[in-house]
Computed example of a mutant assay.
Amino acid sequence: MRNEMMYRPIINEDILHYLRTEQKSLTGALGELEELAHENGVPVIPHETVVFLQFLLRQKRPKTVLEIGTAIGFSASLMAETLGEDAKITTIDRFPVMIEKAKKNFEKLDLTEQITLLEGDAADLLSSLEGPYDFIFMDSAKAKYITFLPECLRLLADDGILMVDDIFQAGTILQPIEEIPRKNRAIHRKLNEFLAEITKSPELSSTLLPLGDGVALISKNK
């Protein structure tokens, strides 16, 4: 399950290597999980995004967090450990293989009381949630970002932050559609729709960062 986007950097490779190797490492069982994921090509957030997410969460100190896209549970565990027991994490995934791996990792890290795993399609589950959430992290099917955005904004607290991962498609996002392989064109179109919405909407503030395969931070204008 190699994450190709992690190996097609959108910034200088020397800088990328520095960001991934010279910033503070995770320790304990969570550090072991990160290392194991990278060794086996499991798609988890790269270390430069890990460090940024830790910093952001420590400044924001959200009490309620929603994640869309659990995968093996690494990022949910990172958020839980960074914020401590006062914060509650709700995470959504629809793939049985990932769900089982995430459950095992939450148990191993003793986070089952802090993290609630919802099993099913986010398209169905988001509408059943009430919120508000102080922080939402979306790292799921890229073509669905534009679809999930209205529900995320509904669930987001007025002073909350929505963080969206993997928005630049390994730096190809601005290429003409004709240059994109046919199998990736739907994702390309939907991601461009998403980027246009979050950068142009008068109701939103956003900033885009070249971390990993690109990160967007979005808040609602008051």
Rank of each mutant, 00 (worst) to 15 (best):
G84S: 09
E85I: 14
E85Y: 11
E85L: 14
E85D: 14
D86F: 13
D86Q: 15
D86E: 15
A87T: 12
A87K: 11
A87F: 10
A87M: 08
A87S: 14
K88P: 02
K88C: 13
K88L: 14
K88A: 13
K88F: 15
K88T: 15
I89Q: 11
I89N: 05
T90R: 05
T90D: 06
T90G: 03
T90M: 13
T90F: 06
T91P: 03
T91C: 03
T91Q: 05
T91R: 02
I92K: 03
I92A: 02
I92D: 01
D93E: 09
D93V: 04
D93K: 03
D93F: 04
D93A: 06
R94P: 00
R94F: 10
R94E: 07
R94T: 01
R94H: 15
F95L: 11
F95I: 11
F95M: 09
F95V: 13
P96D: 07
P96K: 05
P96Q: 04
P96L: 07
P96E: 08
V97R: 11
V97Y: 14
V97C: 00
V97E: 15
M98Q: 10
M98P: 00
I99K: 00
E100V: 00
K101I: 08
K101T: 14
A102Y: 12
A102G: 08
A102N: 07
A102W: 11
A102I: 07
A102L: 08
K103D: 11
K103Q: 15
K103N: 11
K103G: 01
K104G: 03
K104S: 10
K104I: 03
K104M: 07
K104V: 07
K104A: 15
N105F: 03
N105E: 02
F106G: 02
F106P: 01
E107Q: 12
E107M: 07
E107I: 09
E107S: 13
E107N: 06
K108H: 09
L109G: 05
L109D: 05
D110R: 13
D110P: 00
L111T: 04
L111W: 11
L111M: 10
L111F: 11
T112E: 15
E113L: 05
E113H: 10
E113P: 00
Q114G: 09
Q114V: 10
Q114R: 14
L117H: 06
L117S: 01
L118H: 05
L118K: 03
L118Q: 01
L118S: 02
E119S: 08
G120V: 09
G120S: 12
D121L: 12
D121P: 03
D121K: 06
A122Q: 06
A122V: 07
A123I: 04
D124W: 01
D124L: 01
L125W: 03
L125H: 02
L125S: 05
L126E: 09
L126V: 07
S127W: 04
S127Q: 14
S127L: 06
S127R: 09
S127N: 10
S127I: 08
S128G: 02
S128F: 00
S128I: 01
S128M: 09
L129E: 06
